[in-house]
Amino acid sequence: MANPYAVLGLPPDADDAAVRSRYLQLAREFPPEQHPEKFAAVRAAYDKLKDLDSRAEYRLFGGADDETIDELIDSVIRSGPIRRITLNELFRMAGVSGR
């Protein structure tokens, strides 16, 4: 589960109205019938930030599920630039000895 502010694309000082408006915008953009996973992520993020209580609870106690090493690994792999894979790297990735 990613940081809900990042999922909704909101600053940390967003208020109720900003959170709600952004949620509705994203829900329109990613309707559950067409984008079930994305919508579920948006909805989960909205639930964490929807009111002052939720935001305070999240700021105090949340975050434990936001950043896991697994997600970091995923992130470093995804954010690596698309680049040319060398022949030697191909051999290494395939576990083929020789070169």
Binding site: I69, L72, I73, V76, I77, I85, R92, M93, A94, G95
Partner: peptide
């Protein structure tokens, strides 16, 4: 095998952690 190449070895070190 690919994640290490794509992350410049970072993924492998994170896996070690």
């Amino acid at each position: 095998a690919t994640e290490n190449v794509f992350s410049g070895g970072l993924a492998g070190e994170l896996r070690e952690i």
